[in-house]
Design a protein around this nucleic acid. Sequence first.
DNA 1: CACTAAAGCGGAGGCGCCTCCGTTTATCTA
DNA 2: TAGATAAACGGAGGCGCCTCCGCTTTAGTG
Lengths: 204, 204
Amino acid sequence: MAFEPVTTADQKPAAAKSLRADARRNRDRLVEVAAAVFAERGIDASLEEIARRAGVGIGTLYRHFPTREHLVEVVYRREAEGLCAAAGELAARHPSDVALEEWMRRFVDYIATKRGLATSLRILFTTNSTLFSDTSGRVSQALRQLVEAAVADGTIRGDVDASDVLHALGGIYSAPDTPEWRDRSRRLVKLLMDGLRFGATKAG
Amino acid sequence: MAFEPVTTADQKPAAAKSLRADARRNRDRLVEVAAAVFAERGIDASLEEIARRAGVGIGTLYRHFPTREHLVEVVYRREAEGLCAAAGELAARHPSDVALEEWMRRFVDYIATKRGLATSLRILFTTNSTLFSDTSGRVSQALRQLVEAAVADGTIRGDVDASDVLHALGGIYSAPDTPEWRDRSRRLVKLLMDGLRFGATKAG
DNA sequence: CACTAAAGCGGAGGCGCCTCCGTTTATCTA
DNA sequence: TAGATAAACGGAGGCGCCTCCGCTTTAGTG
């Protein structure tokens, strides 16, 4: 029980800076390892394993993240941010249609790690109501940026917008959690891209 | 994780009968003790304590109730049934307005045990969607019976119906979980009854 | 650099979860 | 009533959770 609100105080740079160097190091390490372990073993992974693999004691983990949910939230946010940041980098390095396609592929991977997190995420979203709107807003903003760029330079057709694409990706959320889920989702992305390229002013 | 649907197979009398005598005894004992322990210690009470106090091994508890949620569901259903059954008994033993008042008092106690169960119940209701509609339907049916009887014999005013009363009781659900919650709710029931008696054809 | 206070570390220990399997018991048949 | 057998029992054991507190490290101060 005991679902105290997950504070967001540690988001403030001031608070972040006030950590001692060793503490900051351990904290970062824990988040990184946690992301890997959650991806590998699922949300119910042993926190002791995370601490072990991060090379810290279990006490240290609990000091930084008093509940499993705190840790999950930070990992979740970090991944969402990474996804958003990738949009800019991809756009800078690739033709805009390729950037969009690659970003959607990563989006699928991102969602993949969220599968099976249903319960934990539900608790998080209940507890911290800004979490969902924050991240989903930022993610769709990133998508919008990519779609608009690709429309603008004619590598995808002009009669769609970001919300159409988001809608099309929506099937990924709701699809059942089968073993072939990932492959099917990738095919879906490809299909979607072909559709988007069809009728573009600039031929692929 | 692993939220397999909570089966309702054990509701069938046939299945119930097929238990060996000792098994049935232990199962009943467990449910009874679990109700007490959940009420006393909250939903997170130790299952080992429940087994201990029921005088069975922890293995026996888990054989009958493979997850905590299974056990909670059975306790929940049992209590709701008790509440419904009480309506008939109270009606038989008391003037109809007194029966209604006493029943509402018990309803408050019933809800009291559900406080703090938020998460577990949410999981149950998600998993087993009939659970909520089943029980709430039956409970409001019981209330309806009492209200209609009291209206019929004039011990409460005639211009209200069961859904009005249920609505008035609704505040009990939504009130925050403070220490004075129980007392406040009891005062609310009293207040409601005074209002219901006011203008009754048959003076109290 | 030496010293110190405060911040941080980490793991032992206690508890609860859940499974597994050797033992006990109810029920059925002769 | 005795014997057979499937059902049920129960607790040891392994694992994870989380707290508590004595020890270590850092970051300031003179």
